[in-house]
Amino acid sequence: MNGFGLRLRGLMRKEFLQVWRDPSSLAIAFAMPVFLLLLFGYGVSLDAKQVPIGLVIEQTSPAAREFAGGFEQSDYFAPRYFANLPEAEAALLARQINGIVHLQSDFARRLQVNAPAPIQVILNGVDANTARLVSGYVQGGWDKWLAAHAERNGQAGNRAVQLEARVWFNSALRSRNFLVPGLIAVIMTLIGALLTALVVAREWERGTMEALISTPVTVREVLLGKLLPYYLLGMGGMLLSIGMAVFLFQVPLAGSLWVLLLAGTLFLLAALGMGLLISIAAKNQFVAGQIAIIVTFLPAFILSGFIFNIDSMPPAVQLITHLVAARYFVAILQTVFLAGDVWEVILPNALALLAMAAAFLALALWRAPRRLE
């Protein structure tokens, strides 16, 4: 083995020993992914299920009972009956229910004479997202019931246009299938950026950077010796996350595992480069950790499309998201998991990750200390 290989092996062995002696590094690499995946997989949901809703039926009739029965049989609603509208409004103000469906006393009579039979829907708009979902569910339930009612009365042929919806890629509309793949990008951001943000700063704080600089090793060897162990930790955390996503949370993996691993390598190199650059600039573990959270974790959580739709953001913020590496990785993850190997999405985002990885690693190499100041 030549001198380069011996020196690199020694530096990697030193870094692996440091990781082994520091339980927090192993916790971030392996325990944190499990915790975050369990938290978001089971505790966070964008689905509106068993939404408490009030039903006010002023005059009972077969049509009214049939319409109300649709809410009772739905997984989306947990209906409560109220004798009158003021009682339901009081429950809505007390946040005991999220909406009210009101059938007036002439509902059945209007249906019999083919007159308009309006249904009043009152929603709690404090949580705008839930209000929109409930409104859509009520509208869908009403359309479905109306079609069935028209068919029973021989009026189905009067409907010139019929809407048939087809949901691609996530037919069950499970938010978990959307959240868990995106969470892998956040996890790898923490593993890559937060851990490496401490490695060079740790050397400065402990006074061992002077000893490293005085040895025959080059700056490239020092950085490579620090990158490789954390790259292996990051890929191990990614494999653990993918395994939990597929086998525990039943998220479908429509694409290739190798595409995921290659994209994960590109993203991890970008995250490692960001962490190294922060560590070199900060020279203090506490400061480096705080900067890493603000500069890498928060943008990955908020501006990557992991939870919040980028197209709904203001144009200026959308421009800023192009500087967030997690944006490109989240797009690849969600595409490969749910849609498959769609190269029109994968290739542009992979090239962006490659460019960002090269830029951050080059900056880290340029800023790396070559002599004592």
Rank of each mutant, 00 (worst) to 15 (best):
L103D: 06
N124C: 04
G5C: 10
T265S: 15
I278W: 04
E164V: 15
I191D: 06
A64I: 01
I57K: 09
L195S: 11
W258R: 05
S135K: 13
G5L: 11
V44R: 11
R7H: 07
A31H: 08
M209E: 04
L227Y: 00
V134I: 07
G154T: 08
A160P: 01
L261P: 10
L353C: 07
R327Q: 12
F71N: 08
R327G: 04
V51L: 12
G255S: 11
A271F: 00
T130C: 00
L183D: 07
S241H: 08
L260T: 05
V167P: 00
P315G: 03
M188N: 14
V295W: 13
L338W: 15
Q290P: 10
T189L: 03
R327C: 03
R132E: 14
V345I: 14
L354N: 08
L223M: 07
S175T: 08
S24E: 12
A271S: 14
R152Y: 01
I291K: 04
G140R: 06
S279F: 01
L26W: 13
M188K: 06
S175Y: 13
Q139W: 03
L93K: 15
L240M: 07
T208H: 00
Y231V: 00
P348T: 09
V186G: 14
A326S: 14
L26M: 13
L347D: 00
T218K: 11
F16P: 00
E164I: 14
F16V: 06
L372A: 08
F67T: 03
W145Q: 06
L85V: 02
G192H: 04
I213N: 01
Q120P: 09
D106K: 05
L262N: 02
E58N: 00
E205I: 05
P315M: 05
M1Y: 11
L111G: 01
V342H: 13
P299T: 05
S312Y: 15
M209F: 00
N2L: 07
Q50H: 12
S135M: 08
D22V: 03
Q50M: 10
L351Q: 11
N2K: 07
Q50T: 03
A288T: 09
N153I: 02
L262F: 15
F301H: 06
R367S: 08
L39N: 04
V121Q: 12
G69H: 12
V121T: 11
E58K: 08
V336H: 04
Y230L: 04
L190C: 05
L195H: 11
V219M: 10
Q334M: 03
G157E: 06
G255L: 02
G236A: 10
K226Y: 00
F30A: 11
L232M: 10
R327D: 05
T189A: 12
A150M: 11
P348A: 09
A270G: 11
L17C: 01
L239P: 08
A90R: 15
L55I: 09
L319R: 10
F267D: 03
L163M: 12
G5R: 11
D47L: 05
V317Y: 09
N177E: 05
V317G: 10
M244V: 10
S135R: 13
T208A: 02
R176W: 05
M209R: 06
V134W: 08
P79A: 08
S135Y: 09
A350K: 02
G125P: 06
M274F: 10
L46G: 15
A131W: 13
A148I: 03
V186E: 13
S45P: 01
F360A: 13
L55Y: 02
I191R: 03
Q104C: 05
M235W: 12
F4M: 15
A362T: 14
